[in-house]
């Protein structure tokens, strides 16, 4: 296991210059995430227009992996529908753990190209290429929680 797999330059860059960081006035939803192991904290705030995420920002303190993940997550889901964001959650989860999340699929077909959920929304979405930088996390099981904290907070904000 190599440190360069974990600390890829794009991750270090997002850690140093996080995107979408700071307060979000007039947010429709706000969820707090916490990793009791290391004390990392993140707050995710969303503005919604119907089921579409029109804006998303995060605040918090944490390690490079959790900051970069929050930064890249916000970039990935801004402008997406709830269903698409949940598909991205599933894909990201699979990427960093090497396994699909249990019981989180939407109608069992999230992430399948061309599919839609029960309300007819498209769940189809392409995983942004830069998120692949987190594949190295799967080899550092102690750090999976850091990478997924912001995503879990997002999921909670979307589905409650």
């Amino acid at each position: 296991m190599s440190l360069d797999d974990l600390y890829q330059s794009i991750i270090l860059d997002h850690n140093r210059r996080p995107r979408n960081q700071g307060p979000l006035e007039g947010a429709d939803r706000e969820v707090h995430g916490h990793n009791p192991l290391c004390g990392d904290q993140v707050t995710i705030r969303l503005k919604m227009d119907g089921t579409t995420i029109t804006d998303v920002r995060f605040e918090g303190s944490g390690c490079a992996i959790s900051r970069a993940s929050a930064s890249m997550m916000t970039s990935a889901v801004k402008g997406r529908t709830t269903a698409q964001a949940l598909t991205l959650f599933d894909n990201f989860h699979e990427l960093v753990t090497g396994a699909p999340p249990a019981g989180t699929k939407l109608d069992g077909n999230a992430g399948t190209p061309g599919m839609s959920n029960a309300s007819g929304e498209s769940t189809d979405v392409k995983m942004p290429r830069e998120l692949a930088a987190f594949a190295g996390v799967a080899r550092f099981p102690l750090r999976v929680k850091c990478a997924s904290m912001a995503w879990h907070a997002l999921r909670e904000a979307l589905v409650g």
């Binding site: 296991m1 440190l3 974990l6 600390y7 140093r16 990392d40 390690c63 490079a64 992996i65």
Partner: peptide, 14 residues
């Protein structure tokens, strides 16, 4: 400065 303790621990662990 600029390196979170959790990252330090992972780097040292390597």
């Amino acid at each position: 400065a600029d390196v979170h303790p959790h990252d330090l621990a992972t780097i040292l662990d390597a």
